[in-house]
């Protein structure tokens, strides 16, 4: 009797355990970024960048000094990547909003407001490294596939492209994705000889600005009010013993004065 009851219990637990496991895996597939190849993502990304820059709110800044400074920071971070399938492009747009966001295909848009907010090139590098984390982990594509489906995303319809572009400028990631991007940023900053815990400094300063309307669209703070746990996680990141810091040699205040 007892064995028969235990066998029944085992069957029940097995069946419902399998249903849970199967349903979890099934519901994961619709957001699998592997459904879109990197090449396809980069082509889509180029189209999105063109459309975003047509929007007066995201007008590309034409300032050689700023561009070259961002390129120096971007090159340092790209050099810290072991290997990447993405060709990164860093675009500065003229807006007082403190903002940076990622478009598919390795395109990272940075506002002049964020550059002005950053007290050092290292702080800006920390934010860019976080955005690169979203690129490498393919969070943007995963989110788009989850919300729209692969068919709509790859339809090529100009109207759909326009709508998706509107969504991309205000993308919100979930907590897990933000934490993954934070961890990626810490590793990348370390590999680029930048103090990884600078990211915690940026978070703390952003947290102090809570309520500031200029931060309204900044995805990096989308997990608020769980910001403290992210600060704690970043602060607990310990670089390797042989880690050395190589400060940027640019005159940051002078560069910012050109904004």
């Amino acid at each position: 009797m007892q064995q028969s009851i235990l066998r029944d219990l085992g069957i029940l637990l097995g069946i419902f355990g399998l249903i849970w496991l199967g349903a979890s895996l099934f519901s994961f597939y619709p957001e699998d970024p592997q459904l879109l190849s990197i090449e396809r993502e980069q082509k889509l990304g180029d189209a999105y960048v063109d459309l975003v820059l047509l929007n007066p709110m995201f007008q590309e800044l034409e300032n050689e000094k700023i561009d070259s400074s961002i390129q120096v920071i971007g090159d340092r971070l790209s050099g810290g990547l072991n290997q990447s399938e993405f060709d990164y492009r860093f675009i500065v747009f003229d807006s007082e909003m403190i903002n940076a966001f990622t478009l598919p295909g390795g395109n990272i848009l940075i506002s002049t407001g964020l550059i002005g907010f950053s007290e050092s090139p290292e702080e800006l590098a920390a934010v860019i490294a976080h955005e690169m984390g979203h690129v490498e982990e393919r969070h943007v594509v995963a989110r788009l596939i989850k919300e729209l489906g692969i068919e709509i995303l790859t339809s090529g319809d100009p109207y759909v492209l326009g709508e998706v572009t509107g969504m991309l400028t205000s993308t919100r990631f979930d907590r897990k994705q933000e934490e993954e991007a934070d961890l990626f940023a810490c590793h990348l900053l370390e590999d680029s000889n930048i103090e990884p815990r600078t990211l915690a400094t940026v978070f703390r300063r952003l947290e102090q600005e809570t309520g500031n309307e200029l931060l309204e669209h900044f995805e990096i703070i989308s997990t608020h009010p769980n910001f403290r746990s992210r600060i704690r996680d970043v602060l607990s990141y310990l670089p390797e013993d042989d880690f050395t810091v190589e400060p940027f040699t640019m005159d940051w205040e002078e560069i910012k004065s050109g904004l």
């Binding site: 249903i19 849970w20 496991l21 349903a23 979890s24 519901s27 994961f28």
Partner: peptide
């Protein structure tokens, strides 16, 4: 996805 799996189960 684990939450959605639990909901379905």
């Amino acid at each position: 996805s684990i939450y959605w799996g639990y909901l379905i189960m």
